[in-house]
Nucleic acid binder design. Sequence first.
DNA 1: CGCTAACAATTAGTGCACTAACTATTCGGA
DNA 2: TCCGAATAGTTAGTGCACTAATTGTTAGCG
Lengths: 150, 150
Amino acid sequence: MTVDSDRAEDLLLEHQLCFALSVASRSVVAAYKPVLEGLGLTHPQYLVMLALWEQSPRTVKELGEALAQEPATLSPMLKRLESAGLVTRQRVAGNERALAIELTDAGAALRERALAVPGTMLERLELDRGMLQELNASMRRLIDAAQRAV
Amino acid sequence: MTVDSDRAEDLLLEHQLCFALSVASRSVVAAYKPVLEGLGLTHPQYLVMLALWEQSPRTVKELGEALAQEPATLSPMLKRLESAGLVTRQRVAGNERALAIELTDAGAALRERALAVPGTMLERLELDRGMLQELNASMRRLIDAAQRAV
DNA sequence: CGCTAACAATTAGTGCACTAACTATTCGGA
DNA sequence: TCCGAATAGTTAGTGCACTAATTGTTAGCG
């Protein structure tokens, strides 16, 4: 087999990691959707709430670093979460540039209902905790390499 | 350790497969971006072209099945590819409902330049073919489970 | 034959994600 | 002290992705 035919094989859609990865991401997010609808959250909003349940308040910049998201992406999302009554948005005293995003009581309370989500999803995705950790580790290695590549 | 504290740990952002998967997908797509810019393609457009390089013409429905995408997502994308001169959009003779998407000469020719992409990306992502196949297999299992879940 | 259901694609509307440009604030050195 | 660079968020613009509603076509059945 020649090098050229190897490279031709490489172009098959089914051989593309980027394709499998994109479809997996979309499919997993779609599988979360019915579960998160019960909480009134989209998947990206759920991730923001997870970050805030770990630490609140946090600035937009800090959230962006935790979530690997641009401030420009978070800005409108946080306004929607504010409209939903889950967070407040207030300038940081002593640094009027920064915006502190803080859980409201309702936002903090939502965590109780979210506690069931990971278990439900593990079951729906037919994963045990071991497979979860393995996949997570693979993804982190890939993220590191991909971010070095940019 | 109680069950409750287990469930609390489960809510940590860093333990979420869905988070790692989303970030990995976005990061890998971002790593493709500078490479695909040379071809004048976005990443989703690149996937459409891969599908068409394997078989052309194909209907919108067939492309949707191959790419796991909704026709409503493909419709505007295909118009952009038509504007770029890479594909044609013509109703299927004998079935005026279906739209045949076919590579133009320029679209077919672009494949030659795309042949280098997979190798370049493997290198940039620091992967060998073995790791690629393993990750691909993991993603496919996950996709199957996630799509069953919906 | 004609009517209805199914089918294929498009449109409308919402939300994410990214880049680039812009505003407001703060910091730091001449 | 003041002025320019750096910082933090927002806005504008493009493209994806999804759901629901719509348009036009085909098929099948009574």
